[in-house]
Every structure is written in structure tokens, then in C-alpha cells.
Simulated scan of single mutants.
Amino acid sequence: MTAPLLTINDMSIIFTSPDEPDIEAVRQVDLTLTPGKTLALVGESGCGKSVTARAVLRLLDRNADIRTGEILFEGEGGKVDIARLKPDSDAMRAIRGAQVSMIFQEPMSSLSPVHTIGDQIDEIIILHERLTPRQARERTIALLDQVGVPGARERANAYPFELSGGLRQRAMIAMALACTPKLLIADEPTTALDVTTQAQILDLLRQLQDDYGMAMLFITHDLGVVAEIADEIAVMYLGDVVEQGDVFDVFRAPRHPYTQALMNSVPRLQRKAERERLSPIKGNVPSPKDRPQGCAFTSRCPFAFEPCADTRPARTSLPGDHVARCHLLTRTRAEAMA
């Protein structure tokens, strides 16, 4: 067994406000990432996926606090608990960008509009690798060429607004890979791209992962992308990881009603009736301010029964490394033993 690169244990993230009660955006999350493997973090918008990812890089808002838990990272200097590091500390800066990098959701808002692509990548290389500007530029051109940017030497002098969406995304990937990180966090990197460019970016990420042997945390709401790129999956709902395991196990036999609802809402070409409607999940994700005391999915779950509203379900182990949080699983097990 390969030792984990990143282990998140019992992590809860609280947002504070002087005028409002504290909001628990992420609730006792447990995740493990292994070198060379991809963990997909999925769920509807507002479920805490990006907050969880940003916590690993300590890029949370000022009013956000990692209240409990640990983020254990096996870095170059040994194991360190990122949750205990200050965001602006030298130790955190040595990890961020060099050992853990992130591809942000929207390149146009993440890249500086007043600096060229090459200058922005050069800066990261000079900061972490201590190369001269000339050496950094040659490294930048090589990276842009590696990620498939045509005319890399000329494109390095281009500004973000001069590039297409696909080329901006490739430039973001080159920037994230500038220092050959051990962990790459990709926050919905294909959401704004057309299907052809999306397929090219996924192929590129898989190839780069094979080349570097890095772990990848892939955040998305597209289950088709998950099936194509992920080894493991964690399903989040209202800050809770409600189900996780091997991607084939979860897709073949989803056990949590929310995961089942997500699977049923995916369009299929093999629908029986020509005009058969999709099966959307009824209702909306509750506000974190109105989080149910028990299971977060209670208000939308068609199988909810008495304990669901009042008691948070425990993690139930299933065959393999498959786990889920649902009272139905414990009830089924109790009925089987009766």
C-alpha cells in the first residue's frame, strides 16, 4: 500500500460574522489522497467543495476558521499539519505553489489582466526555484509547450484577454505545474469549456499525472467527468461527505439517497420513452444557517424517517473501502440481524 500524501481528519470550517451566528460550512470531513491517484469531490453548488480545497492551501477568507481537525501533508520536510500553519507563514508559502498547486475555476478572473502569461509563470519559478529571469523564461516556454500551447515562445508574451478559453486554461495548468507539485487541486477546470476542449484538458491532466506521479483532487459537479478521470469519489452535501469510495463501487451501487439522486439526474441516451423527462432532485440545498440537526439531506430525501431529522447518521462501512452516512444503512443492517 502506498502511504497517503494528504490526510484530512475530522475537519470543520466555521465562518464567523459580528452580526450573525457562526456558520459551519464544512462539517467533520475525512479525506485521503494517494500519490498517482485522483479523488473527485462532487456535489451541487454551495456544498463546500471549493472551501475544502482552499483549506488545504490556507486560502480561506479572513472570517473562516478551521475550527477542528487536521490536514496532514507528507511534504519534502516530513509530515506537517497544514491546519496549524498560519496562512502567511514561511512554512505555508514553501508548500503553496511548490508542493501543492491549484488550478482555479475561472482563469480569466484568476490570471492578472495587466501581466503577460509568461511573466506570471516566471514569477512562481523564480520564487520557488531560485532561477534567473532568463532561466525562468526558458522553463516557462517549455511548460507552455508541454501543456499544448501552440507557438509557446510567442504566447508567453500574450495577455490573458488575447487567448481563448482553452489556451487560458492550459496556461493555468502550466502555472500550477511550474514547480512539479506533489498534489494538484483542480477546481472545476473544464466547466466553462466546450466538450472538445474539455476532453483535451482531461487527457492532458491524465498524461501529466502519469508523468509526474502526483496526486490530484478534482472538484466537479459533472459525473461524466468523474467516471473518466477519477479513481475515488467523495460526495458532498451541505458541507458533509455523505458517501465515498472507489469510483466504480459508488457508481455501480450508490448507497446514499443523495448519490442515487445525482446519478438519476444524469441525462441518458438510452431513455425508454422518446420524451421521458429528467429526474431532478426536488427542492433546494438548505442554507448553512438553517442546517438540519440530523442528516443534511433530510428535507429532500424521499426515504427520510424519524431519526433522520434529529440525529446525524454515523459513517457506515460497506464492502471494500466504500462508506456512507445514512440511517437507512443502519436500519437495514439491524433488520437483517433481527
Rank of each mutant, 00 (worst) to 15 (best):
A3Y: 09
L5I: 15
L5Y: 12
M11D: 06
E20Q: 05
E24H: 11
D30E: 15
L33Q: 07
K37E: 14
C47T: 15
K49V: 01
S50G: 02
V51S: 03
A53L: 05
A53M: 10
R54S: 03
N63A: 12
I66M: 05
I71H: 01
G77M: 14
G78D: 03
K79Q: 12
D81R: 10
L85P: 03
L85E: 04
P87V: 10
D90I: 13
A98C: 12
M102S: 00
I103G: 02
S109Y: 07
S109E: 09
S110M: 09
L111V: 12
S112Y: 08
T116A: 11
T116P: 14
I124G: 11
I125C: 10
L127G: 03
R137M: 02
R139T: 04
I141G: 05
A142G: 11
L143P: 13
A152F: 07
R153P: 09
A171P: 06
A171S: 11
L177M: 15
P181Q: 06
A192I: 10
L193G: 06
L193V: 06
V195A: 14
T197K: 05
Q198P: 00
L202V: 12
D203M: 07
R206S: 09
Q209A: 10
L217G: 10
F218S: 01
G224Y: 10
G224P: 12
E228N: 06
I229H: 02
L238R: 03
V241A: 12
E243R: 00
Y258A: 03
R268N: 01
K272A: 14
E274P: 05
E274M: 09
R277E: 03
I281V: 07
K289Y: 13
P292G: 04
R300N: 07
A314T: 14
L318Y: 11
V323R: 07
A324R: 07
C326N: 12
A336L: 12
